[in-house]
Simulated scan of single mutants.
Amino acid sequence: MTASETTRPATVDATTLRELIDSGRAPRLLDVRTPAEFETLHIPGAYNVPLDLLKEHRAELRSHLDEDVVLICRSGARAGQAQQALAEIGLPNLKVLNGGMLAWQASSAPIAQGRQRWDLERQVRLVAGSIVLLAILGSVFVPGLKWVAGFIGAGLTFAALSNTCAMGMLLSKLPYNRGASCDLDSVVGQLRQTGERA
């Protein structure tokens, strides 16, 4: 695998994916967002395998992913990371939903909805913005606090350049973003049941 293949995952657009699903040739859909994001809305028939769980247990998941797999997140960034993690263990037939759930919704494709919660990227913007605002306001009284704002700015810059987000990874571990479906045994059980019916 070349470096360009690892930085640019194979993609499928929302229209093509919808056509595959409607024709009965649906690939395995793995949604790598947090359980809270998944509960809020997801593609019907998708399995929730949060990115951190997928990375930690990718070898165990591999034996249950022998057909075409489409990885889904909000915009495509986390799905791209999941694709790289699974490609490293030799899993073929991986694609990322181009534009993620944002593109899926924009195409007016069907979605399953649950209790509404803020997505992880919105949470990151709230926390980062609040820290910067409080650091700048606090620096009136404690001049050194301006460096906290600078640190957050540097972290956001690194997040954009590396396409990773440490703050997002930390926020994804909060109880608000977790759920009962976020364990490997239930995910593998669901994948196994579907595989046996196929």
Rank of each mutant, 00 (worst) to 15 (best):
L51G: 06
L51N: 06
D52G: 03
L53E: 13
L54S: 02
L54Q: 06
L54T: 03
R58V: 03
R58F: 14
R58M: 07
A59R: 02
E60W: 09
E60M: 11
L61S: 03
H64A: 12
L65T: 02
E67D: 14
E67T: 07
D68Q: 12
D68P: 01
V70A: 08
V70D: 09
L71Y: 09
I72L: 05
I72P: 00
R74T: 07
A77W: 11
A77R: 05
R78N: 10
A79S: 13
A79G: 06
G80S: 14
A82F: 15
A85E: 07
L86H: 04
A87C: 11
E88C: 02
I89Q: 04
I89S: 00
G90C: 11
P92H: 13
P92L: 13
P92I: 14
N93E: 13
L94P: 01
L94G: 05
K95D: 07
N98Y: 14
M101H: 08
M101Q: 09
M101D: 03
L102N: 03
Q105I: 10
A106R: 05
S107R: 01
S107L: 10
I111D: 00
A112H: 04
Q113H: 02
R115Y: 14
R115G: 14
R115H: 12
Q116P: 00
W118L: 12
D119Y: 07
D119S: 10
R122Q: 10
R122C: 12
V127M: 06
V127Q: 01
V127F: 15
A128H: 08
S130H: 02
I131F: 11
I131V: 15
V132W: 03
V132Q: 04
L134H: 00
A135I: 07
I136F: 09
L137G: 01
L137E: 03
L137V: 04
G138V: 04
S139K: 05
S139P: 01
S139D: 08
V140S: 00
V140G: 04
F141V: 08
P143G: 02
K146M: 13
K146Q: 10
V148C: 02
A149M: 12
G150P: 08
F151T: 03
F151Y: 05
F151E: 00
I152A: 09
G153N: 01
A154G: 05
T157V: 15
T157Y: 15
T157N: 10
F158H: 01
F158A: 13
F158V: 15
L161N: 09
S162L: 14
N163I: 06
